[in-house]
């Protein structure tokens, strides 16, 4: 049971980050690897604010805003310009990888390479029906569920959410119906940044953070997106939870050392046998010919 609980909580933080990736990927088709840099930078912002003695909520809010700002900067200074030149998707991917390196290394230069923690002292532990959970874990679960609920409700029921889905489905037709695609792309990158930094802060609060873990976390999120199905906003939800459970199971049955091997074996298996993911539909094959 403890394994499942830990897996679900890890999974929820992966889901939030994976949803951040999807929120940029589906509407813009940009492989937003720069999220790795944002993931690394956000907790440092919060850490500095806390060191300045500001209130925790203000510090966290500012860190989330900083994440959104960085993500918007990636779109405005990088992907929007490439998009106007009709750059192929590979160019976006490499440019985004470059942006990741720049952000992550800037973070390392400003704050150093050492791991840090957000909270001080030993975390309080709660026991619920035989499950031992730390307060940071509970907070991660609660905030993740809250953020996910807000996002999905917004996506499903609001007018802007409808437009967001329409852009993700068919950006050309969306533009032809008179909607400003550029403005909505900014929204996509903004949401992406917010979700990414939220996930990053939750994990940092639980296990600490350093300047170099961002790409790894982002790649895990991408694995979750592929497993769940990259054509749907609900793919990350399914994939992230599954990945969290599998990773926590791997620790339980083998050892923490094999977590990565198991993760990427899972990715390879999905790519081979179900490349469209758990929620994916088979498209018309003729597109290949």
């Amino acid at each position: 049971m403890q394994v499942v609980a830990n897996g679900i909580i890890t999974g929820l933080t992966i889901v939030v980050l994976a949803l951040g990736f999807t929120a940029a990927y589906l509407p813009t088709r940009v492989f937003h690897l720069a999220l790795g840099g944002i993931y690394a930078a956000a907790p440092f912002c919060a850490w500095t604010c806390l060191r300045l003695g500001w209130s925790p909520w203000f510090a966290l809010g500012l860190a989330v805003l900083a994440g959104a700002g960085l993500s918007l900067a990636c779109e405005a200074a990088n992907h929007a310009l490439l998009d106007r030149k009709r750059a192929p998707s590979g160019a976006h991917l490499i440019a985004s990888l470059g942006a990741y390196i720049v952000i992550a290394q800037a973070t390392a230069m400003i704050w150093g390479n050492e791991p840090k923690v957000l909270r001080t002292g030993v975390d309080a532990v709660t026991t619920i029906g035989g499950l031992v959970l730390t307060r940071a874990q509970l907070m991660a679960a609660a905030v993740s569920i809250g953020v996910l609920a807000i996002f999905y409700v917004w996506l499903r029921f609001s007018g802007l959410g409808l437009r967001f889905r329409a852009l993700a489905e068919n950006s050309v037709e969306f533009a032809l119906r008179g909607y400003n695609v550029r403005r909505l792309r900014l929204l996509a990158f903004g949401i992406s940044g917010v979700l990414c930094s939220t996930s990053s802060l939750l994990v940092a609060n639980d296990v600490g953070f350093d300047a170099h873990g961002g790409l790894h976390a982002t790649i895990l999120a991408v694995v979750a997106v592929i497993i769940g199905g990259r054509r749907s906003f609900y793919g990350p939800l399914v994939g992230g939870l599954l990945l969290g459970l599998v990773r926590s199971g791997a620790v339980w049955f083998f050892s923490a050392r094999w977590q990565e091997a198991v993760t990427f074996l899972l990715l390879a298996l999905f790519l081979f046998f179900r490349p469209s993911g758990l929620l994916g539909r088979k498209g018309r094959m003729e597109a290949d010919v």
Partner: peptide
């Protein structure tokens, strides 16, 4: 841009790929 053309009063219906597959008709 296409949206500026559309706002100016030009409406193009493409020959294919002109639907939003996972939206309902009401949403469209």
């Amino acid at each position: 841009t296409p949206w500026e053309c559309a706002q100016a009063g030009l409406s193009l219906l493409q020959a294919r790929d002109h639907v939003f597959p996972s939206l309902t008709v009401r949403e469209a």
